[in-house]
Computed example of a mutant assay.
Amino acid sequence: MTGTIVEVTIPAEQFALEHTLGELETVTLEIKQMVATNRDSLMPFAWIETDERTAIEEALTNDESVADFQLIAELDTECLYQLEWVARIDHLIRILVEENGTVLAATGQDDTWHLRLLFADHDAVRNTTEYCENNGLDFTVNNILEFNTDHRNRFDLTETQQRALQLAAERGYYSVPRDSTADDLAEELGITHQALSERLRRAHGNLVDQVFVESTGTREPPELTTGESGEDTMAE
């Protein structure tokens, strides 16, 4: 199996923070980490670039999709918040949990969310798309990127970083609850727990820096085809 990265857009009114994005029209919310703790809970950490902290917190307080929020850090004109969303925001959470998908990054601007999702295989992408369609969620797929050698170079990933990401996706490391631990992955790769954590951290950072900084494309997604995992050429 090869990992698959999917670029999608979702209307804010069907997902989260519609009120906040509407009140702060010039503000962009950038989700740096989104953790699904169970089938009904998704805890995002959001960077918000603005010099109007009072307006931000007033909007979050009045946003029906936000159960609670906490200021984590404030740097110049950027604020980092941990958000707790209400239970109704469960469509995307449920299917991501079931299909072992993970949110690499997400940006909310105006009335739309742009997401980069990582799945272990094509079936998970199809199942997610079908689930959203059946539940009335406008889950628009703009691009599908195969996690092969060409895209490894595009994402500025080393062979060992790509191998670690692929193995983590294939073994259910990103599922909730996890089917595989960091120790399991490290043992299979023949490296230490610390080395694995650092490798995944750098790989995630490269994906965000090299992929998510670009605007989401509007071209039709390519036809899904089965690719080679390339494991024989990715030894440590």
Rank of each mutant, 00 (worst) to 15 (best):
V66T: 11
L96H: 10
E214S: 14
D40W: 13
N148C: 03
L117V: 02
P44W: 01
E64Y: 11
F119V: 01
D63R: 07
F139D: 01
F139E: 03
E198P: 04
N206K: 08
D232P: 04
V176M: 08
E228V: 07
D123W: 12
L157Q: 01
D184M: 06
I10F: 03
G3Q: 02
E84I: 14
R126K: 11
R126I: 11
L200G: 08
Q33V: 15
I191V: 13
R126N: 13
N206R: 09
A36M: 14
D121Y: 00
F155P: 04
T128E: 04
V35G: 11
A16K: 10
I5H: 02
A106T: 03
L224S: 09
V8E: 01
P11I: 05
D68Y: 09
C79A: 10
V8N: 01
P222V: 09
N153P: 02
A182Y: 00
N62W: 00
N153Y: 06
P222R: 09
F15W: 13
E146H: 07
S175T: 00
Y81F: 12
Q14V: 08
A203H: 01
E52Y: 00
Q166H: 10
L83Q: 03
Q161V: 08
D156C: 13
A168F: 05
Q33F: 15
A182V: 12
V6L: 00
I72W: 11
T26N: 14
H204F: 10
L42I: 14
F155K: 02
E18P: 06
F147D: 01
L185C: 05
S197I: 00
V141W: 04
G136I: 09
I31D: 04
H151F: 13
A124F: 02
E133M: 14
F15V: 11
Q70D: 10
E188S: 08
I95M: 08
E25T: 13
L24Q: 05
M43R: 11
F212A: 12
Q14I: 07
V125I: 08
